[in-house]
Simulated assay, not measured.
Amino acid sequence: MTERYKPNTTVACVIHCQGKFLLVEECINGAVKFNQPAGHLEANESIIEACAREIVEETGLELTPQALVGIYQFRAAADLAFVRYTFCIELAKQQHATPRDNAITAIHWLNLADITALGNQLRSPLVLKSIEDFLQQSDKNHPAQHTPLSLLNVDYF
């Protein structure tokens, strides 16, 4: 019998304001990496609660996810895989963010060109992919819309 596949469950949030996206900077194995506020699902919390908690921990901002951008499956290595629930928040005004998590070294508001230019400094390909999906869903000429949070049923949690 083969070993059961157990990907890590993670959450992330695309936070957008006036053409810029909030990214957190962190040092991983000596390398500077950029990511959306993100992290792992913890025991006794819903996916949406996990996202709100990660936003507070990594930015100091008390924000609630507004919609679901997508659910992504990603293999980081042969023995390391993730299922990532990516949410979004649209802000009317950029907010000053101060991380509470010591692993976060800085917060940046960057436009799409700046983020694309980061290349391998992005924590994973999902950082850029989820921003592109967010923008496609936000495009007024595109029929897709952001998926409402009601899609995620937490009634039985």
Score class of each variant (00 low, 15 high):
residue 65 P to L: 08
residue 25 E to V: 02
residue 60 G to H: 07
residue 126 L to N: 07
residue 13 C to K: 08
residue 6 K to W: 07
residue 52 A to N: 05
residue 31 A to M: 11
residue 121 Q to E: 09
residue 53 R to W: 05
residue 6 K to E: 15
residue 153 N to C: 12
residue 151 L to I: 03
residue 21 F to V: 03
residue 9 T to D: 07
residue 44 N to V: 06
residue 60 G to K: 09
residue 46 S to Y: 04
residue 90 E to R: 12
residue 37 P to H: 06
residue 78 A to N: 15
residue 15 I to W: 11
residue 143 P to D: 00
residue 63 L to F: 09
residue 8 N to W: 14
residue 44 N to H: 14
residue 82 F to A: 03
residue 107 I to W: 06
residue 55 I to W: 09
residue 115 I to V: 10
residue 107 I to A: 02
residue 154 V to W: 12
residue 65 P to K: 09
residue 120 N to M: 02
residue 152 L to R: 00
residue 4 R to F: 11
residue 70 G to Q: 03
residue 80 L to D: 09
residue 52 A to H: 04
residue 28 I to L: 05
residue 103 A to M: 13
residue 11 V to W: 08
residue 62 E to I: 11
residue 140 K to A: 12
residue 18 Q to G: 11
residue 157 F to H: 13
residue 99 P to C: 05
residue 90 E to G: 04
residue 88 C to Q: 04
residue 24 V to I: 15
residue 73 Q to A: 12
residue 143 P to L: 02
residue 59 T to V: 11
residue 85 Y to L: 02
residue 76 A to T: 10
residue 111 N to M: 04
residue 150 S to C: 06
residue 155 D to A: 13
residue 148 P to M: 01
residue 156 Y to Q: 15
residue 64 T to D: 10
residue 51 C to Y: 09
residue 50 A to D: 06
residue 85 Y to Q: 03
residue 53 R to S: 05
residue 2 T to K: 15
residue 42 E to R: 14
residue 107 I to Q: 05
residue 48 I to Y: 03
residue 31 A to F: 07
residue 3 E to G: 12
residue 140 K to L: 12
residue 51 C to K: 04
residue 91 L to C: 08
